[in-house]
Amino acid sequence: MTPKQRRLARRLRRLRLKSGLGLEDAAAHLGCKQPKITELEACQLGAKPDEVRALCELYGAGRATVESMVILARTAKSPGWYQVYDESANPENIDFVELETDAVSVSNFEIDLIPGLLQTEDYCRSVIRAANPGITGEVLDQRVELRVKRQDRVLRGELDVWAVVTEDAPLRPVGGREAHVAQLTRLPGLVSLPNVQFQVIPVRTGEHIAMGVPFDCFRFDDGYGTVAIDHLSGTLFLEEESDVERYRPAFRHLCGAALNPQDSLALLRKYTEEGHGSWEQRI
Rank of each mutant, 00 (worst) to 15 (best):
N93Y: 13
Q119R: 14
N90W: 13
P133A: 03
N93Q: 12
D216P: 01
E92T: 11
A54P: 04
Y85H: 15
P249S: 07
Y85V: 12
D263L: 08
E92H: 13
G256S: 07
K4I: 00
V97G: 04
T226Y: 00
V164H: 05
E145V: 06
N108T: 15
A64Q: 13
R150Q: 08
M1H: 12
Y85A: 11
L12Q: 11
S192F: 04
G46D: 09
P173F: 10
I209H: 05
S78D: 11
D50P: 12
A258I: 04
L193G: 03
I94N: 05
S233K: 00
I201G: 02
S233A: 09
R13K: 14
E167L: 12
Y82G: 03
P35D: 02
S233L: 02
L55K: 11
P194N: 10
T205N: 02
K77D: 13
V154P: 03
P249F: 08
D230Y: 00
G212W: 00
S88I: 05
R143Y: 07
A210L: 09
N93M: 14
V181H: 11
S192D: 15
E57N: 10
V164E: 08
K36T: 06
C32I: 14
S278L: 04
D102S: 12
L12K: 11
L190T: 08
D122E: 15
V164F: 04
T75K: 12
S88H: 13
T2D: 10
E280W: 12
I114W: 06
T235E: 06
P115I: 02
F251R: 01
Q34T: 13
Q197L: 04
R143S: 01
G212D: 01
I71Y: 07
G22N: 11
R10F: 04
N260I: 01
F198A: 06
A28T: 08
A103S: 13
V161M: 02
M69L: 13
A89Q: 06
D50Y: 13
G256D: 10
Y123N: 06
V97Q: 07
I111P: 04
D122K: 13
T65C: 10
D222A: 02
V70F: 08
E274V: 07
V66F: 07
L155C: 03
Q119A: 10
A266D: 13
E138F: 10
Q183I: 01
V200T: 09
Q183T: 00
I37C: 12
L171V: 07
R14I: 02
S19F: 03
D230V: 03
R246W: 09
E280C: 09
K4G: 00
D243I: 02
G175A: 08
A42K: 15
Q44K: 14
E100K: 01
N132K: 08
L238T: 02
D102E: 15
G46P: 01
R156W: 03
H276T: 12
Q183F: 01
R11G: 07
V154L: 15
G22I: 07
S242A: 06
R219T: 15
L140A: 00
E121Y: 05
P202Q: 08
V97F: 09
D141A: 13
A89E: 07
G189K: 11
L184P: 03
I135Y: 05
R156Y: 02
L267A: 12
R10L: 10
F198L: 03
C56L: 04
C56G: 00
H180A: 10
V70S: 06
Q151V: 03
L23Y: 06
D221H: 01
L159R: 01
R16V: 09
T120D: 06
A54Q: 12
R7I: 01
A228S: 14
